[in-house]
Amino acid sequence: MPSDAPPDWLHQRWVHSHEEDHGDEMVFRPASFPFPPSRGRRSIELGKDGTLRGARPGPTDRSEGAEGRWQIEGERLTLFSPGSQSPAQALVIVSASADRLVLRSASG
């Protein structure tokens, strides 16, 4: 991932394709991907203006959303909760293409 402006295809909703995870690497696919059934999936939408729309399974399995901000520096993707200056999640971009985004936790 280049450190200058991210490519346009990054600005879409990425859904966790947990069946494809390997070790500590998490695989995300575009929302249009033909996912098999699941008890619930996390998703992140990286808006071009830096806004983040996240969703994850809630306490009774319905998807529940939250908004925030995101930032890329080099290989590092940082997600912030609304109004917070400290990262909610620090991730490393292992690989990225228009149909597959692989992330792992920066602390892992």
């Binding site: 996912f35 059934p37 399995d61």
Partner: peptide, 26 residues
């Protein structure tokens, strides 16, 4: 929709929506 397997409602919630929903193929 979205391949979800099911969802539920905790006790004490609105009666009209009380119960569980399960995907037919699961």
């Amino acid at each position: 929709a979205d391949g979800l397997l099911g969802y539920a409602q905790f006790p004490g919630g609105p009666p009209k929506t009380d119960g569980v929903v399960v995907l037919n193929r699961a």
